[in-house]
Amino acid sequence: MSEVRERLARAALTRVVEPGDELMGRWLLEHGALEVRSAIENGGVALEGASPERWQRLRTRIRAACPEADLEAAATAGTRFVCPGDEEWPGQLDDLGAAKPIGLWVHGAPSLRFWALCSVALVGARACTDYGVHVASTLGAGLAEAGWTVISGAAYGIDGAAHRGALAVGGATVGVLASGVDVTYPRGHRELIRRVGEEGLLVAELPPSVHPTRSRFVLRNRVIAALTRGTVVVEAELRSGSLVTARRAERLGRMVMGVPGTVTSGLSAGVHQLLRTSGQLVTEPAEVIELVGRIGELAPERRGPVLPRDVLPTDTAVVLEAMPARRAVGLTELAAASGAPSARTLARLHELRALGFVERGGDRWWLSVPKSAPRGHPIG
């Protein structure tokens, strides 16, 4: 019974204060949800730290709260209220301390705790470029195919592209909303948010029917940062909510990553500043996984194409490098240039001739002309 009352108290308090209210967080840590709710409802002496004006606002708001109705409506819509201490509660949210959520309204079948254990945040500009959309959707799809949960904010631009990339490959994705889970925002993402709720998870701190505000988007970002092992920023201006997420992730000890863009684009200026100060540069899913995954999950080393001369033995390559570019050379001169005895130099020249690197005319040697280049005798 006490667990039910605790849940009701926390559900009521989600209607009383804004997400991330640290004063409320401290009250909950010190007194528990039941005592805090009772103190506000019954009046009396205000809890420590609350001004008379604020205490009155809290009392006004809690009188309008009806947690029983909220929980019943949520359950009817397939939404549950997850509290700290529940089996489904992601323990990493406790890293937020007094700013951790009072509880989370979760819509969707999977376990939030299990999905968040192996998750990455993909965030970025709303008014992004085609390049940003391509990068975000590719990263979202690649991470999801590798078994990672893609977490973002369901906003226009990079967020939407990240969710769509994960959904396109049947992967796991979570939308953390700045409204109630039953409020579609932005409206243009109605279909996307519906799909995330049906195939993945929608998560909100705010109770049902509550609409977003500018400040709630910023407050929502701390949950995205805390839920995940790392945050990847794809396109962000110097003043960007995505950078707020990245900075919060850094303070929480999470990995912070950024995808570089065009140096002349203002939409990449924030990412580039992040990379100069604290972020790790990533360009593909494997590089992200290397930074946030288990030991040994290394991205393949990137190399240019292997050229035939790359596989030559060292002493043979030395002779080839000593060959003049535009004229023929005799054995004595070449041996001096390569620093090897004449007999050894001659042996290496025969090897190079067999491999098609050099040609011979009498006692003179020269570099072979590539087949694509005009052919002519190089003797000068």
Score class of each variant (00 low, 15 high):
residue 162 A to T: 14
residue 28 L to E: 09
residue 27 W to M: 05
residue 274 L to T: 03
residue 333 E to D: 14
residue 205 E to V: 01
residue 103 G to Q: 01
residue 49 G to E: 12
residue 332 T to C: 10
residue 139 L to W: 14
residue 196 V to D: 07
residue 283 T to V: 13
residue 13 L to Q: 03
residue 216 R to L: 12
residue 100 K to W: 02
residue 238 L to H: 06
residue 372 S to Q: 11
residue 119 S to I: 02
residue 372 S to W: 13
residue 280 Q to S: 13
residue 348 R to K: 11
residue 273 Q to F: 00
residue 198 E to D: 07
residue 326 R to N: 09
residue 143 L to Q: 10
residue 146 A to D: 13
residue 256 V to T: 06
residue 352 L to D: 11
residue 155 A to V: 08
residue 292 V to R: 01
residue 347 A to H: 04
residue 249 A to F: 04
residue 201 L to N: 13
residue 125 A to F: 05
residue 236 A to D: 11
residue 111 S to V: 10
residue 225 A to K: 01
residue 337 A to W: 00
residue 264 T to G: 12
residue 68 E to T: 00
residue 298 L to N: 07
residue 349 L to Y: 04
residue 134 H to M: 13
residue 325 A to H: 05
residue 310 D to R: 08
residue 246 A to H: 03
residue 214 R to I: 07
residue 347 A to E: 10
residue 353 R to L: 10
residue 289 I to H: 01
residue 27 W to H: 13
residue 286 A to I: 08
residue 173 T to S: 11
residue 281 L to H: 12
residue 248 R to F: 01
residue 133 V to A: 05
residue 257 M to S: 12
residue 370 P to I: 13
residue 53 E to Y: 14
residue 208 P to V: 00
residue 365 W to V: 09
residue 331 L to G: 07
residue 271 V to N: 05
residue 50 A to V: 11
residue 24 M to R: 03
residue 147 G to H: 07
residue 187 R to L: 08
residue 343 A to L: 12
residue 43 G to H: 03
residue 235 E to T: 09
residue 278 S to W: 00
residue 215 S to M: 13
residue 118 C to F: 00
residue 97 G to A: 02
residue 87 E to S: 13
residue 347 A to T: 07
residue 288 V to Y: 10
residue 126 R to D: 06
residue 32 G to K: 09
residue 131 Y to G: 11
residue 125 A to P: 08
residue 294 R to L: 11
residue 150 V to D: 05
residue 65 A to D: 00
residue 106 V to H: 01
residue 334 L to R: 10
residue 160 G to S: 15
residue 333 E to R: 10
residue 101 P to I: 05
residue 314 T to Q: 13
residue 328 A to H: 00
residue 146 A to Q: 14
residue 178 A to K: 02
residue 307 L to V: 09
residue 352 L to Y: 10
residue 276 R to C: 08
residue 120 V to T: 14
residue 233 V to D: 03
residue 273 Q to T: 04
residue 282 V to S: 08
residue 91 G to N: 08
residue 362 G to L: 05
residue 185 Y to T: 14
residue 154 A to L: 15
residue 261 G to I: 07
residue 313 P to T: 08
residue 304 G to F: 01
residue 106 V to R: 01
residue 153 G to W: 03
residue 249 A to H: 02
residue 216 R to D: 06
residue 171 G to R: 03
residue 330 G to H: 06
residue 303 R to T: 15
residue 360 R to G: 07
residue 361 G to A: 14
residue 170 G to C: 05
residue 149 T to D: 13
residue 373 A to K: 07
residue 20 G to L: 08
residue 160 G to Q: 07
residue 134 H to P: 00
residue 161 A to W: 10
residue 94 D to W: 15
residue 100 K to F: 03
residue 158 I to V: 15
residue 257 M to L: 13
residue 116 A to T: 15
residue 296 G to L: 04
residue 77 A to C: 10
residue 270 G to E: 11
residue 230 G to N: 09
residue 214 R to F: 06
residue 250 E to F: 12
residue 359 E to G: 12
residue 72 E to I: 01
residue 205 E to S: 03
residue 65 A to S: 10
residue 274 L to R: 08
residue 104 L to Y: 04
residue 161 A to M: 09
residue 131 Y to C: 12
residue 31 H to T: 08
residue 342 S to Y: 04
residue 297 E to P: 00
residue 285 P to A: 12
residue 62 I to T: 04
residue 163 H to S: 09
residue 180 G to A: 09
residue 160 G to Y: 01
